[in-house]
């Protein structure tokens, strides 16, 4: 992808987001006056930011159209998508089966996905590292982590 196209797209997304947020500030909840009728309504400051934000986004679009263009490095979208999906699933699983089991499964899946397939290293790391973190948080820092429905503490 060309840098110009990338920056124009980014600027357009930011501009659209600014538009939507501006509409949000039009709701009744934002129209309450300041304290005892003095001061400013809650939308006062955000609106200033949205105006400046839109101006910056417009400038970015203008700049990317006018200035010299070159190729931007292309990431591996598939790999990034998989990583995000897997992390999303991990977050979901933490709530369902607890931190420990979810983390073990996540690490055991993530490392091969990134190209590391040495099982004698991968499996112990996938098991021992979450246990170490779980132990540290639960018993040293006294921050209880989500548990599974099958065990009281795990």
């Amino acid at each position: 992808m060309r840098v110009g196209v990338r920056d124009t797209s980014f600027g357009a997304v930011m501009l659209a987001a600014a538009g939507l947020l501006w509409l949000e500030t039009g709701r009744d909840a934002y129209q309450e006056g300041g304290v005892l009728g003095y001061g400013f309504d809650p939308a006062f400051f955000p609106r200033i930011l949205i105006v400046l934000w839109s101006a910056a986004a417009l400038l970015l679009i203008l700049r990317s159209v006018v200035l010299w263009d070159k190729d931007a490095p292309e990431p591996r979208w598939g790999m990034a998508g998989l990583a995000v999906a897997l992390t999303g699933l991990y977050v979901l699983l933490i709530g369902k089966i607890g931190f420990l089991f979810a983390s073990m499964a996540f690490m055991a899946l993530l490392m091969p996905l990134m190209g590391y397939r040495r099982l004698p290293v991968l499996l112990p790391v996938a098991v021992l590292f979450p246990i170490a973190v779980w132990y540290t948080f639960n018993f040293l820092l006294f921050i209880p982590l989500p548990t599974s429905p099958w065990f009281v503490r795990l």
Binding site: T87, M107, M114, V133
Partner: peptide
């Protein structure tokens, strides 16, 4: 190896 490291950082 980097994958090991990134996995730990994520957790």
């Amino acid at each position: 190896p980097e994958p090991l490291l990134l996995g730990m950082v994520l957790v």
